[in-house]
Each structure stands twice: as structure tokens, then as C-alpha cells.
Measured scan of single mutants.
Amino acid sequence: SEEEIREAFRVFDKDGNGYISAADLRHVMTNLGEKLTDEEVDEMIREADIDGDGQVNYEDFVQMMTA
């Protein structure tokens, strides 16, 4: 549901600035027990970053979650 997606976005957007940065993503993945290299984190950001601004905004996140 849209509310679940919004809630998930809030979990990833640690600093609440409306964007998921590589640092935000790394933090959440580490908490989930996933040890990722910087390259892996950057690749995840690139794949999710639809508009190419280097971070994942809510619209990018929705597209990723509903793809």
C-alpha cells in the first residue's frame, strides 16, 4: 500500500531530508545485517535513482518498490 511504501521510505531516509543517500542506505542495510561494499551501495543507488541526481527521492523509491 502507499502508506507502507511511505513508511519504508521514512526508515531509509535517516536524516528526514526527503532523499535516501548512499549513507542512509548503507546504514539501513548494515542494521539488517547486510555487509555491503561501497561499490555495492553505490550500484543500488544508481539503479534506484531514476532522475539521475545521485540520491533516491520519494518518487524514485515508489517506482523501485512497485516495479
Rank of each mutant, 00 (worst) to 15 (best):
S1T: 13
S1N: 08
S1C: 12
E2Q: 10
E2D: 07
E2I: 14
E2T: 08
E3A: 11
E4Y: 09
E4K: 13
E4F: 10
E4V: 09
E4C: 13
I5Y: 09
I5W: 14
I5G: 00
R6F: 05
E7A: 11
E7T: 05
E7M: 07
E7V: 03
E7P: 01
A8N: 04
F9S: 02
F9L: 11
R10A: 12
R10T: 04
V11M: 12
F12Q: 02
F12K: 03
D13R: 00
D13V: 01
D13I: 01
D13Q: 01
D13N: 01
K14L: 12
K14Y: 14
K14D: 07
K14N: 08
K14C: 06
K14F: 14
K14M: 08
D15T: 08
G16I: 02
G16L: 08
G16A: 05
G16E: 04
G16Y: 04
N17Q: 05
N17Y: 05
N17L: 07
G18P: 00
G18W: 02
G18I: 00
Y19T: 08
Y19M: 11
I20L: 03
I20H: 00
I20Y: 00
I20N: 00
S21A: 10
S21M: 06
A22N: 07
A23Y: 03
A23F: 03
A23N: 11
A23R: 09
A23L: 07
D24M: 05
D24W: 03
L25M: 05
L25R: 00
L25S: 02
L25H: 00
H27G: 05
H27A: 09
H27C: 06
V28L: 06
V28F: 02
V28R: 00
M29N: 02
M29F: 06
M29P: 00
M29Y: 03
M29E: 00
M29A: 04
T30I: 11
N31F: 12
N31W: 13
N31C: 10
N31E: 14
L32F: 10
L32Q: 03
L32T: 03
L32C: 04
G33L: 13
G33D: 12
G33Q: 08
G33N: 14
G33W: 15
E34T: 15
E34A: 15
K35A: 08
L36F: 14
L36Y: 14
L36N: 03
L36I: 09
T37Q: 05
T37P: 06
T37H: 05
T37R: 06
T37G: 05
D38Y: 09
D38C: 07
D38A: 12
E39N: 07
E39L: 10
E39W: 11
E40C: 14
E40G: 04
E40I: 14
E40F: 10
E40P: 02
V41S: 02
V41P: 01
V41L: 14
D42K: 06
D42R: 05
D42M: 12
D42E: 14
E43H: 15
E43T: 12
E43C: 14
M44C: 10
I45F: 11
I45A: 05
R46V: 05
R46L: 08
R46D: 04
R46G: 08
R46H: 07
R46P: 02
E47I: 15
E47W: 15
E47V: 15
E47S: 15
E47Y: 15
A48V: 09
A48F: 11
A48G: 06
D49W: 09
D49I: 12
D49F: 09
I50K: 14
I50R: 13
I50P: 11
I50F: 06
I50L: 11
I50E: 05
D51E: 08
G52D: 13
G52K: 13
G52I: 11
G52Q: 12
G52P: 13
G52L: 10
D53V: 09
D53N: 13
D53A: 10
D53E: 12
G54P: 02
G54M: 04
G54Q: 04
G54W: 03
V56K: 00
V56I: 13
V56P: 01
V56W: 03
N57C: 14
N57E: 06
N57D: 04
N57F: 14
Y58M: 05
Y58S: 01
Y58L: 08
E59W: 06
E59P: 02
E59T: 04
E59K: 06
D60C: 15
D60Q: 14
D60R: 15
D60H: 15
F61G: 00
F61E: 00
F61K: 00
F61C: 02
V62N: 01
Q63T: 09
Q63R: 15
Q63D: 07
Q63S: 08
M64T: 05
M64N: 07
M64S: 06
M65F: 06
M65L: 15
M65W: 05
T66H: 11
A67M: 05
A67F: 02
A67C: 10
